[in-house]
Design a protein around this nucleic acid. Structure first.
Length: 139
DNA sequence: GCCAACGTTGGC
DNA sequence: GCCAACGTTGGC
């Protein structure tokens, strides 16, 4: 099962907003970048991802999972843009900040560090396991 | 608020 | 098809 990372500015869409949607989850709309869209096309039901706060917060704060495969983004004026649906799994007991990630040699190759502008990105199994450990999250 | 990095657009 | 100009993102 592949792992991912979803970026959001907390004042635009926070983990609490997603929690309110419950098991049904919510559409991850608004992605207007081909690489990010292609990543969403690769997602399968049950794939898990981190929820990352960009700009304000700058930390991995929660775990989410894909509950609907990529489909056209209803907020886009062009059908080339797609989105998946995700739902909340759990808030992390301890947030892992961007600074933590940059300082950790095991995480320094993360896409988050090297291509900070990509809003939906893949995470390797090793990175996933390490961040879960740092965050006190039991898989 | 600034600026570097990146993606997109449009003229040639 | 190249590349300059522009817009956006996101860290600082």
């Amino acid at each position: 099962m592949a792992k991912w990372l979803f970026k959001s500015e907390p004042d635009v869409y926070s983990f609490e907003d997603l929690l309110k949607k419950g098991k049904a989850g919510d559409e991850w709309t608004g992605v207007r970048n081909y690489q990010a869209r292609n990543n969403m096309r690769l997602m399968k039901i049950g794939d898990q991802g981190f929820f990352y706060y960009s700009n304000v917060g700058k930390a991995v704060v929660a775990v989410v999972e894909v509950c609907k495969l990529a489909h056209p983004d209803s907020t886009a004026d062009n059908p080339t843009w797609e989105c998946v649906d995700i739902r909340a799994v759990a808030a992390l007991p301890k947030q892992v900040t961007l600074e933590d990630i940059k300082l950790d040699p095991k995480l320094k190759d993360m896409v988050l560090v090297n291509n900070s502008r990509l809003s939906v990105q893949p995470v390797t199994d090793a990175e996933w396991a390490h961040i879960c450990k740092l965050a006190g999250h039991k898989a």
